[in-house]
Amino acid sequence: MSIQEMTREAVAAAVLEELTNVAPDLAGEDIPEDADLRDEFDLDSMDFLNWITALHNRFGIDIPELDYPKLSTIGKAADYLGRG
């Protein structure tokens, strides 16, 4: 399914799924949509890059480095990707 056909809720769920794939130690954690992933969940630069890579591969959307700050939470990432 292309991202345009997905509900925002489904995009957010997919974004979270990719996060726990690259950081399996976060599986089962309650990660609020507005929680800063780096500050509150200790995501380091490598985890973050792996997550961006997974999102790029899953949705085929280009995510330049300069846009990284726009993906600092699950919610922001879902909004960013939803805009296509």
Binding site: M46, I63, P64
Partner: peptide
């Protein structure tokens, strides 16, 4: 590094580390 990574998909980007 910024210029290098700007040309590349995420899986080929390099970290300062």
């Amino acid at each position: 590094l910024g210029a290098h990574n700007a040309e590349l998909p995420p899986d080929r980007r390099i970290l300062m580390a």
